[in-house]
Design a protein around this nucleic acid. Sequence first.
DNA 1: TAACTTTGATGCTGCACAGCATAAATCGTA
DNA 2: TACGATTTATGCTGTGCAGCATCAAAGTTA
Lengths: 233, 233
Amino acid sequence: MFSTEPSNVSPQEPRKAIYKYLTDEEKVELDDHLTRTQIKKNDFIFKEGDKPLGFITLEEGKVKIFKEGVGGREQILRMVKPGGFVSYRALIAGEIHIASAMALEDSIISVIDADHFFNKLLKNTQISTRLLTKLAKELGFSNSRTVTLTQKHIRGRLAESIILLKYKYGVEPDGSTIKAYLSREDLANLSNMTTSNAIRTLSSFVTEKVIAIDGRKVRILDHQKLERISKLG
Amino acid sequence: MFSTEPSNVSPQEPRKAIYKYLTDEEKVELDDHLTRTQIKKNDFIFKEGDKPLGFITLEEGKVKIFKEGVGGREQILRMVKPGGFVSYRALIAGEIHIASAMALEDSIISVIDADHFFNKLLKNTQISTRLLTKLAKELGFSNSRTVTLTQKHIRGRLAESIILLKYKYGVEPDGSTIKAYLSREDLANLSNMTTSNAIRTLSSFVTEKVIAIDGRKVRILDHQKLERISKLG
DNA sequence: TAACTTTGATGCTGCACAGCATAAATCGTA
DNA sequence: TACGATTTATGCTGTGCAGCATCAAAGTTA
C-alpha cells in the first residue's frame, strides 16, 4: 500500500530528482535558480502557515512533514528521503503550507524558486506528468493512512509505521535493521499514539520476538508477523 | 480549510466540467468517447480493487467515496457534487481503486474512456494544469482530515462534517438548511464514529440549539458556535 | 566529573467512545 | 393498509488508550 519503492537498491538516489528530465542546457539554467542549503538536525525548513518559497527537494538527510493538531499534538504525515520532495504540494495548490517540515538529521535541500518552477519546469510535459502521477499516488497514500490511523488498533498502527519506515528508508547490510533512527516520540507521532504507548507497544513487540531494539535501532525479526499485526490490528 | 468553494452561488455547475477548456471541435470529439449513465440510489459506481474504467465526472446527483476499514467499518473520504470528479485519482496514478463510489441519490455520471483521457484531454495543458492543482488541493484536504479525524473529539468531528456538507452542497433558500440529506449512518461514517454516537451527538447539538433536525434535514442555527465546537472539539 | 536535560521505561487512574440491547418511529412494498 | 425491514433513539457496560507520575538511563554542557 505504500507509494514508495524499497530504497535499499542503490545507496543513494541521484542528487537532483528533476535532472533526468532536462537537457544539458536546461540543467545549467536550473542551477541558476536553485539554492542548496544545509539544514541542521531539528531545524525547521518551513512551518504551517508559511508561504511556499519554492519547490524543495531533499539531497541528503531525512525530513519529517507533520501537522500540529489538537493541543499541539503532532501528526507526522510523511517522511522524506534523499531524492524526494520536501515542498511541492502547497506551491502547486497555490496555498500556504498546511504542515511543517523539520530535518530529522543534518540535511541538504535544494530550493528551486517558484517562478522558475512554474514558468520552466512545469511546462516540461515529462515533469508535469511525473508530478501529476506523484500527487495522485500521494493522495492514495494519504487516504489509506486516514483509514489506518482512525481504525486500526494501537499495535496495528505501530506495526504499519515500522513497515512503512522499512520500505521508505531501507535496511542495513544485515538485511533487517531499519536505516532510520527515530525517537519514540517521532514513532508515536507517526502512528497517532502517545509516546508512552509507543514505548509500551514496542516493548511488547520485543517480548513477542517480532522486532529487536537497540537504542533507536529497530531490527525486524519476523516481517510476516509484523504484517499480520498490521493487518489484523 | 475545505478545498471547495461554497456551492450555493449558482444552482448547478455546467454539466461537463471539462467542456470549458475545449474548442467546439474537441467537444464533439469528446462526446464520441463519453458515455452518460444513470445510477440508482445506493448503486456502486466502482468498488475497492476495481481497475479504473475511465475518467468519471458527476452530472447530477450525489456520490460518496469511501473505504472499508477494520471489520468492514466504512470511512467516507469525500463527497461529490454535480460538476465534480467521481473517478480520477486511481486512473492518473495507474493504480486500482483503493476506495469505492456509491450514489447517495439517483445520479447521472459521464464516463470518458481511459485512452481518450490520456491521449487527448491530458495533453491539453489547461486541463492537466487544472488536474494538477485539483490533486494538490485534494491532498491538502486529505492531510487535514487525517489530523481532524484522529485528534478531534467526537463533537468536533461531527461539527466539522456538518460544516463540510454545508460548504460542499450549499443550503436551501432559507439560508440554513443543508442541501444534503444523509442518513445518521453516513454522517457517522463521514465523521469516524458509530451510528449511535452520531445520533447522540446530533441530539445534543439540537438541545444546545446549534442545529435543528427534521428527519434527515439539518438546519444550522448557530454557525459560529458550530465552528467553535469544530475547532475546540 | 558533576550537574542538568532529555529520552526511555513502567505502573496507575479515569474517561471517551465502542459495542451491545431494546424500543419506537419511519420507510418500503406487497 | 398492513407487515416486515430499516432507521432513529436512548440506555447500559466494558475497555482501549490518554494522561499523568515516578524512576532509570543516556546524552549534553560546563
